[in-house]
Each structure stands twice: as C-alpha cells, then as structure tokens.
Design a protein around this nucleic acid. Structure first.
Length: 571
RNA sequence: GGGCCCGUAGCUCAGCGGCAGAGCAGGGGACUUUUAAUCCUCGUGUCGUGGGUUCGAAUCCCACCGGGCCCUCCA
C-alpha cells in the first residue's frame, strides 16, 4: 500500500520554473500538488532554534499550511507535523543571531539555560516557542509538534542510529559522491553528547562495535567551539547521541512516514543538504524521500535578511504590525520559487500589502476593481485567510477601511473613527467588520511607531517650519488676521482662543471668507504653519488641542515668514 | 567552480507564442464648510544583450551580460 504511494512520489521538486507551468492560476502550485498525489499524506518541517527568528522564516510554515489546506480540499487525509531540532549544537549559525551564548558553544540547544527569565526550560524552548506561538494566530495548526530532545531519549531514533552506524561506509560514500565532502575512513555518522563537558558539536566517533561507539571530544574539531579532550566508549542510544543533520532529517522521514516536505533554497541547492538527505533516505534507510517544495527567501531591500545585521524584523515583532491575513498574503501571492522583496522600513510596503489584500477581497466579492487581477486571485484570497473554515464570500464582502486612510485618522485628535467608517460604508459596521477595524487600527498605530516614513506621520513642529517660506502673501495675511481675530482680550489680559474645535473652525472660515481667500488655501496655510505640510487633520480641532498662547505665537511667526520664533542659528 | 531565482514604466510586479499591461508614485484638472479621500486625465518602454525557431517571440531554444541568494546545519 505505502509502496504504491511512494512510487507516485518519485517526481522531482514541484517548484517549476515559470516557463514550465501551464496556463496557470496563482495558486496552482498547491492545487497541482494536491492533484498529483494519492492516498494519505504526511507533511513535515522542522527548525533548529538557533536564536531569534526573523519574519522570512514564516514563509515555510505558511507554505506548509497552504499545502495542507489544498490537500484536504482535494480529499486527502493529511497530517501536518512540525519539529524542533533542539538537540542541534549551538554553533556558528547561532552566532548570526544576537542571542548566542559564548560559553555554551557546542552544547545542544535544549541543554542551554534560557537567557531570558520568562519561564522557558531552555534556550531552545525559548526561541522555538516564541516562534511557534505565532503559528496559531497565523492560522497554522500542526497536528503534532515534536521535539528531538524528547524523541531521542524515548528511543525512537535508536533503530536509525544503528542502521546509520552499520552502513557508515555508505554514508561516507554519499557525502563524497553527492557533496564532494571527504570524511576520514574512520568517521561515523553519529554525534555523541560528551559525557564530560556536555558538548555535541565537538565530538567525533571513530569506532563502532555493534553496540558501543568510541568517541573523542576534540579541542580543535570545529572553529566555533572547543572540546574538552575526553574520550571513551558509549552506547549511542536513548539520547546519549544524535545523528548529524542530514541523517536526522532522513530518519525523521522514515520515523514519521513523511510524504511531502518543503525546504528553503539554501538546502535545496545542487549537492547541498537536501540532495545528501535524499540519497541517505534511499541508500541508508531504504525509503523514497518526500516530495520537495523548494522555496525562495524573503529579501529586505534586495538583500538577504539578517537578524544580526539589523536588516529585517524579528518574526514576533512584525506580527504586531501586519495582521495574519495580510502576512499570509505576503507569502502566498508569489510562487514558492520566487524571492520576495519586502522592505517595510520607512516605505509604504505595508500599506500597499493591505491595499493588495483589499483588492483581492473586492475582486473575490465581485466588486469592481481598478486595473487587472492576476490570474488565480480568488485562490490567493482564500488561502490568505487565517481561518481555514471561514466563509470566503462573507470575508470577501466585509467592509475594510483603507489602511493608509486609517493611519491618517488615528493621528487626528478626537476623530470618531467607527462613525466615520460607517459613513464610508453607508451602514453600520457589523461585529466582524468592527473586529477588522480594530485590528487595523492597532496595526496602523504600530506601523506609525515602527516603520512609517516621516511623510505619513503628523506632528506639530516645535519651531516654525521652514516650509512657511512657500506661503504667499494672501496666506500670510490670513494667518495674521486669524491671530488677531481670535486674540480677544480676556479679563486678565492673557490671550484666549476660541473654545473647542467647532469655534476654531468657524473662526477659520469666517477669517478666510473675510479676506476672500478660498478655504483650501487657508487650511493649507495652517497646516504648513503647524505641521510643515500642506494637508493634515481637521484644523479646528488640531488648534483647539494646543495651548492658545502657542497657537497665536505660531500664527504670527508664520505670517511673518518665520522670522519670529526661530532664533537664528541657521548659516 | 556548481545550483536556483530574477532582469518588462520612477517603484512593486502581472502577462509567458497573437496589437506592451496594471497598481503605486508622479504631472495636469475637477469638486469640497475643510483633512483623508473621491472623480477625470496623462504611459514609445532598446520587455537585459546577441543569435536561433516561427507566418508571428516580452513569451520557446542557445549563448552571453547584470543582480541576488545558496552550496559552511538560517529558509
């Protein structure tokens, strides 16, 4: 039974180049995959919790989820597994994150104490859990999570360890043949956790007697960690040793019966990790490897993301700005073999992501959209939804406020956003729409705090903006006249302003009308005087929220062309 | 050295054998007791280059150029 399934899986990676696909719709890669397989499917992915994970790492889990949904929609019984390779050593890889612990280099990640005192049992648990905690909110629900630090001690890997050691010569041959890596003839594919110093990255096994291995913990085996120099015979079972990554990967496929496993393009390169593991699966564990779905990375500004170099956001931070449906859209819209260019810092990339999602919703709901839709847009929309069981039509039909507009409104003092949105929609927002609004309002604020370009932010300048030099005489006159008009002497002689936004607003219109200045020019003058830009929030309410003395001084300074209030200093 | 991806409008990209397209940005205009917006309008771009196949190539093939990433356990 299983064998017949395997035989059908012998096709290469599905990541077809653009020239190979047919008259495709956008999500065909997932649906085509679902149409190609038969029988029950097991999808797997696993991750080494080396440290803080950046947002690009979520592409893999989202792709897993989309494949799972496509398979289930096609009627295949499907199991989704997600593993944590937490017996891997803290190695050079961890040095690429800000989290590496120098004295623990070479130690299994699961055996390193959590550096953050927030209740996790280990370094590995901390970073893996921080990552995994994002899954549910993104609509990714593996049927089972497994941790290699549980799997090994439970003995489940013992039979694969034995097979690998018995066939060490085959493994060495694969490394040499597939990857041009020449291990010594005494090298054995097992990593003992040193009984003396606890490191796994520094040990090498040179003998296997069928029950025990002889290992040495060498000071200079690797550059990034120093072994303690001890050696001895040990039974490499029950968690006392782990397989090297390529063998562990292949062993996982056998252990869990994996039929589909996507991987990043770094592993999928010719002669790389995936090729080695595929060969090991076939020749050592005698099982056809799972279907591969190779996927490209997420680049920031045309360059690779790097947590350590400050390019790109940590995954757990970006989700505060990009809600699940939109983050899924980011990953799902391009085919897996396309690199994604994404640069949220100081750009409108995030607002445009929302716009694109909204356009997908509009088109799916049958509303008119500007321009043309990419083929397969309805599938993209459906798979982008966090909730796999959502009523797609209802979701598409729901009212969604423009993100950019919302980012503006949240900066307007006293704006009644729900009422404004109801006006825009033409009727009251329902519960779901209010939830979407709230989600976007939070996201908009977070975006303004963390990523937005300055032009999207509105703030009253502390001194007279240079931009007042662009005002014409009529506008200056308006500002001066307004200041005089509202500066009615109070009993004590101190300046007062109109009480409240309505009164300010009325004064603005009255003053402009008195001067014959079109309201638009008058308001523009105010915005320039206070914000340094030609548009802004409702001016009356903006001024009402400021100190009257400040407002009057600024009006007069701006009317004078900025010669008052900015005390020299400029060359 | 090998592998993968990309190269189409300022930017992000779609199109993948049949008249070069969209969004955004930008220009111009309209409206407005206001902001955001909305509406109208404006697109000749060596489709990276050179060959080839074809009645016909941005599209298929070959070579090359440029960019990016990977091949060190990141995805």
């Amino acid at each position: 039974m299983r064998r017949s399934i395997r035989r059908r899986l012998r096709n290469g990676p599905i990541a077809a180049s653009r020239h190979q696909r047919g008259a495709a719709s956008g999500m065909d890669w997932a649906d085509e995959l679902a149409a190609r397989v038969s029988g029950a499917q097991v999808i797997n992915d696993s991750k080494t919790p080396s440290g803080t994970v950046h947002v690009g790492s979520l592409r893999g889990p989202v792709i897993l989820d989309v494949i799972t949904r496509a398979l289930r929609a096609a009627g295949h019984e499907t199991t989704l597994l997600y593993g944590v390779d937490d017996l891997d050593a803290m190695d050079a890889q961890a040095l690429l994150t800000p989290d590496a612990v120098e004295r623990s280099m070479g130690v299994p990640l699961a055996h390193i104490p959590d550096q953050v005192n927030d209740g996790h049992a280990s370094y590995a648990r901390h970073h893996a859990q921080t990552f995994i905690d994002l899954f549910a909110n993104l609509g990714i629900h593996p049927d089972r999570y497994y941790w290699m630090s549980d799997i090994y001690p439970g003995g489940a890997m013992d039979r694969y360890i034995r097979t690998a050691l018995d066939r060490a010569h085959v493994v060495r041959d694969i490394y040499r043949r597939v990857s041009n890596v020449q291990h010594p003839d005494t090298w054995h594919p097992i990593l003992v956790i040193c009984e003396t110093c606890g490191k796994v990255g520094t040990t090498i096994v040179t003998k296997w007697d069928g029950q025990r291995v002889f290992y040495e913990c060498r000071a200079d085996l690797v550059a990034w960690a120093t072994g303690c120099g001890s050696s001895g015979w040990v039974e490499p079972f029950g968690g006392r040793a782990k397989l090297p990554w390529n063998l562990e990967w292949a062993a996982q496929w056998s252990l869990f019966g994996v039929t589909i496993e996507p991987c990043g393009k770094d592993l999928a390169t010719a002669g790389g990790s995936r090729d080695r593991s595929d060969a090991i699966a076939r020749e050592v564990f005698e099982r056809e490897p799972p279907i591969n779905v190779a996927y490209e990375f997420l680049n920031i500004g045309g360059r690779k993301m790097s947590t350590s170099k400050g390019r790109g956001a940590a995954a757990h931070q970006i989700v505060e700005v990009i809600p699940p449906d939109q983050l899924r859209t980011l990953f799902i819209r391009p085919r897996p073999n396309h690199a994604i260019e994404f640069d949220p810092e100081g750009t409108d990339a995030i607002p445009r992501l929302f716009d694109e999602f909204d356009k997908l919703a509009d088109a799916t709901a049958g509303r008119p959209v500007k321009g043309e839709m990419a083929p397969g847009y309805a599938s993209v929309f459906r798979y982008a939804l966090r909730n796999a069981d959502a009523d797609v039509d209802a979701e598409a039909a729901a009212f969604r406020p423009s993100f950019a507009h919302l980012a503006f409104l949240v900066q307007v003092p006293g704006a009644d956003i729900p009422t404004k949105m109801a006006d825009e929609k033409g009727s009251a927002l329902d519960a779901r729409e209010l939830a979407i609004l709230e989600e976007r309002r939070v996201a908009a604020r977070a975006w303004l705090d963390a990523y937005a370009p300055d032009r999207a932010r509105m703030s009253v300048r502390e001194s007279v903006p240079d931009e007042v030099s662009t005002l014409d005489d009529a506008q200056r006159m308006f500002l001066a006249t307004l200041a005089d008009a509202v500066n009615l002497p109070a009993a004590g002689g101190s300046p007062i302003g109109p009480a409240g936004g309505d009164a300010w607003q009325a004064a603005i219109f009255a003053t402009a009308a008195g001067l014959g200045l079109p309201p638009g020019r008058a308001f523009a003058a105010l915005y320039v005087a206070f914000l340094g830009r030609s548009n802004g929030p409702r001016a009356g309410w903006l001024l009402a929220g400021l100190q009257a003395r400040f407002v009057l001084d600024r009006l007069r300074a701006a009317a004078a062309g900025g010669t008052m209030g900015t005390a020299g200093g400029e060359p």
